Each structure stands twice: as C-alpha cells, then as structure tokens.
Simulated assay, not measured.
Amino acid sequence: MPKPGPEGTRVESELGPHRTSGRGAPAWIPARTGSTSSVRPTGDIVALSWPGYRCGIAVHGRSPSPHARAQWVRFVDPRGGTGSAMDIDRFTTLVAQLAGIDRASSQRVVEAVLSTLAEHLSRGEAADVLVRLPPELQPYLHTAGSPERFGVAEFVHRVARRDGSDPGTAEKLAAAVFLVLRQAIGEDEFADLSAQLPREYAPLLSGRSVLDPSERMLARIASLNDTSVEQARRLTEAVLETLAQRIAPGDVVDLAARLPVQLHQPLRRGVESPDRRMSAREFAARVSDRAGIDVERAVRDIPAVLAVLRSDMGDEFFDIRVQLPGDYWPLLGIGPADRGSGKAGDRRG
C-alpha cells in the first residue's frame, strides 16, 4: 500500500533523505540506486522520477505499476516520530476484540471510520494523524478536498452506510476504532485530533455511546432512505405532524410515549389542527410541503418513517394502522401481494 506523508516530511530511502512537496500524497521510490530524484505532486499522485529509470507512480488506494521495481518509502514525522508503533494486524485485531467481530469485518469497519473521518478533516489535520498510522491504513485518511463539517449523528450514519450496518451497530464499532486509534497515534496526537472535532464527538472518541434516542432513530431512517440525518429529521417531523392530524388524539398520546421527547413538538402541532378525513394524497402533499421536498420524493421516503415507527411501537402501531384506509397502503409499505392476503390488517411491526 502507498504511504502518504505531509508536506515537508522527510523520506528515508536507500539513496538517503529526500523531501516530498505534496501534502498527504502517496509516494514510492524505485528500489534500485540512481542519481538525483525529483518529486512532483499531481493531485492524489506523487511521481518520483530517476534519470535512466522508469518513473514510478503510486495512486491513492492502488498499488504501483507492476512494470516498475519499487519499495514503499518510510515517512518520518518532522516532530521526531517515526510513524505508527502499531502494525495493521495489531490494529485490526484490537478493533475486532473490542467490537466483538471477526478480523475481516474489523478491517472493513476501520476503513469506513477513517474514510468518514477524512471527510471531516482538512488536509493538514489528516496528515498529522496519517503519518502515525500503519501504512496499509494511511490511504483511507488521505484527503485532497475541502473538509466537510458535520455532526456526530451524520458521522455515524456515514460509517453505517459504508460498513453496511445499522446506525446503532456503527456507533459501537466506531467507538472501538477510536479507542484503538488513540493507542496507535499516541495521547498527544489524539488530543490534537479531538480538538479538531465538535464537542459532541467527545463520548464517541472515549468509546462511549454518543447518539441520543432521537438521533439514533433519525439515523435509522436516513439509512433506509439513503439521505443525510438532517434530511431525515425534516422528513420525520413532517410525517409526525401530519400523522397527528390524521389519527385519534388518544393514539397520538400513545405514539408520543414511544418517541424520544425531542420529537414530541411535531405531534403537538398536529393535534392542534386535526383532519381525520385526510386522504393519503393530501397526507403526502402536506409532508412534501413541510419537509421541503417534492411529492414524488415524499411518497418514496414516508414508508421508511412509518416502518421505524412500526418497529418501535410493536403491537400499538396496529391501532394507528386500522385508522388509515386502503389508499394509505403504499405509504405504509404494504405491497399488492399483501393487500388481498389478509396480511395488510395484521401488520404489527
């Protein structure tokens, strides 16, 4: 694997030290001796050319050309460090043990967490951490773009999407990775990393639960619809307000008892303007207007919210379901095969 290094990092090779001019870019050098080299950064590529020899290029995330004889260079932290004291096997084994998963799964989780972290950090911030990681993991933290600043719920959602897990699982897995990352890069560097992240990340960085119940619920909905957590929040609040208009007040109370308190306000707004005869078409139109999305998108995304409600409420969701006529079935995720089979009336989560 290529091993990126920050700007000004010293490169140790059999030809002696050279300096890279590309920050965080992967690099490699020919194994054979030669004369003076030059380093040319080209985006995510660093090419080291040697007179009389082929030019070797290592692209981020890929192996070098098979036509060139090469060895990976070793990047040395200008502050005196010599890279990670923890190799890839030790890193993934510790994550596997902490998370209770197998080694193959731990490799995938580590890649998902580091790739998501790279999206949040600037190139300089990422480079400071990157030089202390095992070489095989460094490409995942390499970043060439502008940092995206997003909250911890969105962080967990992105990890879940990359790992193919649910947000609750992704939260626990990410916490395990951060615990091992702390060991790998050292306390001082980890403190610098923590300072670059919002305070809401603190529990996750300490290996603790970070999502409150509402964020966990929204992350599940975001995962089902493949949207951001903020989009899921707007959609969920719109669905809850509209649903509270459509169903009986007593069932709104039961629904509120099963929901995180942060999501009670939309229910209160809905109860204040009841509309018990609202059709499914009007339901989707109101959700569309409140969430700021088009009606077609609302029809496609509403079932995810109702599916999560059904899962969390269990049998009590049936009391809501029986108040909604057949035109609501697509919004409830009831397909044509279920409509005539008797399953539609028995869907209780």
Rank of each mutant, 00 (worst) to 15 (best):
W72N: 10
T143S: 11
Q97C: 01
S279T: 15
D251S: 09
R281H: 13
S209Y: 09
Q107W: 11
A118V: 01
L137S: 04
H60C: 09
S49A: 10
L94C: 04
L218F: 01
A127N: 01
F317M: 11
L48I: 13
P41H: 03
V113W: 03
D102Q: 06
G43I: 03
A291T: 02
T116W: 06
L137A: 08
A307Y: 11
Q71L: 10
E215T: 00
Q183V: 06
A126F: 00
H67G: 10
V95Y: 04
D289A: 15
W50S: 11
C55V: 12
S279Y: 02
I29N: 07
S341M: 07
S223D: 14
H142A: 15
R103P: 03
S165M: 00
L255C: 02
R108G: 15
F91R: 01
G168D: 13
G83H: 04
R300F: 09
F75A: 08
P167I: 01
I101D: 06
R297W: 06
A219Q: 05
E296R: 12
I88V: 14
A280V: 05
R103A: 06
L309A: 04
E316L: 11
E237D: 09
I302C: 07
A280R: 01
P213I: 05
A304M: 03
V295K: 12
V113H: 03
S206M: 10
A96C: 02
R182F: 01
P41Q: 03
